[in-house]
Every structure is written in C-alpha cells, then in structure tokens.
Simulated scan of single mutants.
Amino acid sequence: MECLYFAAGRCRSCSLMAVPYLQQLQDKAEHCARLLADHTSLRFLPPQPSTESGFRNKAKMVISGTSESPNIGILDADGHGIDLRHCGVCAPELRAAFPVIERFIRQLGLIPYDVPKRKGELKHVIITLAPSGDLMVRWVLRTKKHFVALRDSLELFRKALPAAKVVSVNFLPEHKAVLEGEEEIVLTAAQTLGMELNGIGMHLRPQGFFQTNTEIAGALYRQARQWVTELEPASLWDLYCGVGGFALHCSASGRQVVGVESSAAAVKAAERSAADLGMENTRFVTGDATDFVVGQDQGPELVVVNPPRRGIGAVMADWLNDSQVKHVIYSSCNAVSLAKDLKRMGNLEPVEARVMDMFPQTNHYEVILRLQRKE
C-alpha cells in the first residue's frame, strides 16, 4: 500500500507503511511465537491476513482549523491540525462522508477546538461503518453551544448523508487527551448501529466498543466458534464481552452462556441482540469481570476472555489457574501482556494459537489462543 501522507512525513501513525504486507504478517507471527516460545506444546495456525487498505470501519478524526476551512484528521506534536481526509486505511464509505462533514461545519459555523489555545467547540467527529453500509456519526463538542444547530440540522444532514442511521452529540468539556465525554445525546430515532457478522446481528451503541477491522473481527469470532463447537461445553462465560460478539457466536441449544461487561450500554446492546436471535440460554451481566469470577462458587466448562491491552491481570489469572474450568480461549490485542498472564496459569496448557492481523500497516495485532487444563 502507498500513502502520500506517509511519504510526505505528514503522518506516521501507520509505522509499517513502507514494509511489504506479507513481510508485516510474517514478522507479527514470528514476534508472537518468540513471546510464547516457553510453551513448547503450542501449535500456531497460519496467521489470518487482512485487506491491506480500506480496512478500518471507524474514523476518529480531530477537527481543527477554522469554521471556514476545517481540517479533518489528527494533530501534530504541537497540537496543530493535519488534514487526513483521504487516509487510505479508512474504508471508502468513511472517506466519502468527510466532504459532508466539512460542508456542515462551514454551513453551521461550527468552531473547531484549538488545542494550544484551549478555545473552540467542535473537538472530534467519530464515524463508524456497519457491514450493511450504514453509518454512525458522533459529533464531540466542548459545550452545548452548537447543540441546537446540530439538532435542528439533522434532517438536512441525513439527506446529504443518507447512510447516517445513527447521529449523536457527545460532550467533552475537559481539556484532556481523550476522544469523548460521558454525556451523549442521540438525535436519531435509531439508537444503535446494526453490526452483522457471520449471520449474527449485533447492536453497537454510540459509546460501545467494536473491533475496528470488520473482516478480521469476523474471522476472530469464527475461530472461537470453531473451537467451542469442537469442545461442546455445556456452559461458557464470555468475560470483557463488549457487545457480546463471542457469547452470541458461541451460543447453542442447551448451552448456558453468560457475558460479563463493565459498560451498561454494551450489555443493553448485547441483551437486545440475544433477544433478536432467540437465544434464551444466553444472558449478560453488567460488572467488572474479575469481581464477577471471584464472587462465583463454581465456574463454567469454558471461559472466553477478551481483555484490554493490560491483560486479565494476576487475580483473574490465578482464579482461572486454580478453578475447575476445563478450557480457556484468550483473545489478546497485546501478546506481551498475554505472555505475562500465561505464566500465572501453569495448570492450563496452551494448545493452539492464531495471529489475526487486526491492524495492518502497524506493529499491532490480535492473537487468539486456546488453553486446556492439564490432566
């Protein structure tokens, strides 16, 4: 993949842009194998490649410049805007939305936030693409100064961008390096974006998490489902479940499935998906995953964990190690923390692993690994 922004030195977010893609994939597989080399019984399946460009289903764009001439992109080291509206890793449908965003910024007189001066109103625009082609558009404001203008222009905005099924306004009053605040007002009748993968319909709320590479997310869920189908557990927990991707993919008649997630909005979305799919034996719980497991008298036959980059941590790892859980599927976005967690789970033997290239053009990747209890 070639990128004019990278070649010009304007953006180096994709640090591997100059490396041939097959070499990227091989390097990631070798990096993961080195980190997990102590587990001699572990067999690596062929790494799952991704489409090289246009794979991102989410654009988290900083708005800078002026109302008359806004930049849509990122900030440089000094806090000044760099326009990246033609970024090649963003899906074409996202790039097609940027001219509409720019036009409405100008027409409504939305004032971009100036980071060095700490002045202005419009901080970010976050756009998510569903497999159906529908979009979720989120305007992130410092205050409610522009809220009425955005609300009243909704009909015109959706006419200009018909794919925008969910439109919301988020408020981030603090000056800090985060994308969004706690308060969010959805302007459209539709409150969730439908995200169907592998025939499983899921619902994404504005502040919910979903993998940024739809193609690889689908492959990740299929791999987990394949393992679960082969093992046929009677009970399964999906910890750090988000909108329920693993739980919903691994649900089956007679199997008791519980998903645990700290985000109440994500749990609500997962519950709606389970209801839509008629999964009566699949339920979801709002709460901290570690607190949930230590409060249980007995674990299930199989546990899926999909933690943030820091990993599952000592308490969760020790609980899994000492429990009667027969199988664990660990989906990790950070093989370094995965290796650290595995050291605490000596009673569970890593059997199979697969690198999933969720983030082409960067050093990051996902790895999914299956463990079984030693006899």
Rank of each mutant, 00 (worst) to 15 (best):
E375W: 11
Q26L: 10
L110P: 01
G254M: 10
L4M: 14
A252L: 09
Y5G: 01
L248E: 04
V100L: 01
K159M: 11
L161K: 03
D27A: 11
E349V: 13
V137Y: 01
V367W: 07
R158S: 10
K119L: 02
E271K: 14
R255Y: 09
S69C: 15
N57Q: 08
G242W: 04
V137R: 01
R354W: 12
A97F: 00
Y221L: 07
E349C: 15
L277Q: 09
L320I: 10
L129C: 03
F6W: 04
L204G: 02
G9E: 06
Q24M: 04
V169T: 04
V325E: 06
E349Y: 15
T188L: 01
W139S: 00
E52A: 01
T362E: 01
P206D: 02
Q223P: 12
G109F: 05
N213C: 04
V336S: 15
A7S: 10
Q372C: 15
G311M: 07
E280Q: 15
V258F: 13
L75A: 03
H175T: 05
L161R: 03
E121I: 07
E230R: 14
G181F: 00
R151C: 08
L154A: 08
K60T: 00
L342I: 07
P233M: 11
S15A: 15
G218Q: 10
V228E: 05
E2G: 14
G79M: 03
V305A: 09
K117V: 06
P99N: 11
T143I: 03
D322R: 14
V186L: 09
P173Q: 14
I200L: 13
L45P: 09
A217R: 05
E121V: 01
S168V: 00
N334T: 13
A190M: 07
H249G: 10
R309N: 08
I72C: 02
A59F: 03
A177S: 14
P116M: 06
A18K: 03
S153F: 05
E93G: 10
A224L: 07
E102D: 05
N363V: 13
T192F: 14
L236R: 06
E261V: 06
K60P: 00
L371W: 08
L150A: 04
R118L: 12
Q223R: 12
M358K: 05
R142Q: 01
C14L: 03
S262A: 15
R56I: 05
C87M: 07
W139E: 00
S153W: 02
T51I: 09
S337P: 08
A37M: 09
G73A: 05
T51N: 10
K374R: 13
G278W: 15
H39W: 15
E68A: 13
N334W: 08
A177K: 11
L25H: 02
M316E: 09
N57A: 03
A33D: 11
L193N: 02
N71Y: 11
E349G: 14
L141I: 00
L22P: 12
G299W: 15
L197F: 10
N321M: 08
E121H: 03
V294H: 12
P360D: 00
K28F: 04
D297T: 14
M1Y: 02
P49N: 08
A339D: 04
V367M: 10
A317R: 05
V355L: 06
R354V: 14
D78C: 14
G181D: 00
I368E: 02
F104S: 02
D27T: 10
